[in-house]
Design a binder for these strands. Structure first.
Length: 160
DNA sequence: GCCAACGTTGGC
DNA sequence: GCCAACGTTGGC
């Protein structure tokens, strides 16, 4: 199993929204590096859910990959902001996965706190100016973050 | 293939 | 709202 981090702006789609809808196609990723990470995801992988453009920015919960990469339908929709005229149905350029909520943190674990954890050293997330919206996370960083939220392995077993 | 211009991200 | 960092675009 691998671990990831997904960024989302809470004003657009936050963790509470994921809890409400129960399952969400993670569409709209239009960066090749992030897309390749989406394609590396396997069913059952766990994702830290990160709120960007929030005060404070940070991790607010855990989600789980419940469907592996498939074509992002918005790339074919001319009405969508994510429409890509250079993509074709025969050779889709952009992918998405489906995710579902696992557990909401009792409180946010802020970016500031992550930066203080040795487990997060060297991550694209904590580096300066990173705009990557899908980030691979080392196991140590994942568990340290869960611990900082006051949770442990047992809190992940009651999958919602 | 270079690189300047431009648009976007996202912390602050 | 500001602006640094970064990715993309497009002229050449």
């Amino acid at each position: 199993m691998r671990f990831w981090l997904l960024k989302s702006e809470p004003d657009v789609f936050g963790f509470p929204d994921l809890v409400r809808v129960r399952r969400e196609p993670w569409n709209g990723v239009r960066n090749y590096q992030a897309r390749n990470f989406l394609r590396d995801m396997r069913e059952g992988d766990l994702c830290l859910f990160y709120h960007s453009n929030a005060r404070p920015p940070g991790v607010v919960g855990v989600a789980r990959v419940c469907r592996e990469a498939y074509a992002d339908d918005l790339q074919f929709d001319p009405a969508s902001a994510y429409f890509d005229p250079k993509s074709g149905v025969d050779a889709p350029r952009w992918s998405m996965v489906d995710v579902e909520p696992v557990v909401a943190f009792p409180g946010v674990v802020p970016l500031d706190a992550l930066r203080l954890m040795p487990e997060w050293e060297g991550s694209p997330l904590t580096g300066r100016g990173s705009r990557l919206s899908v980030v691979p996370v080392e196991a140590g960083a994942f568990w340290a973050t869960l611990d900082a939220a006051g949770l442990d392995f047992g809190d992940l077993s009651g999958l919602s």
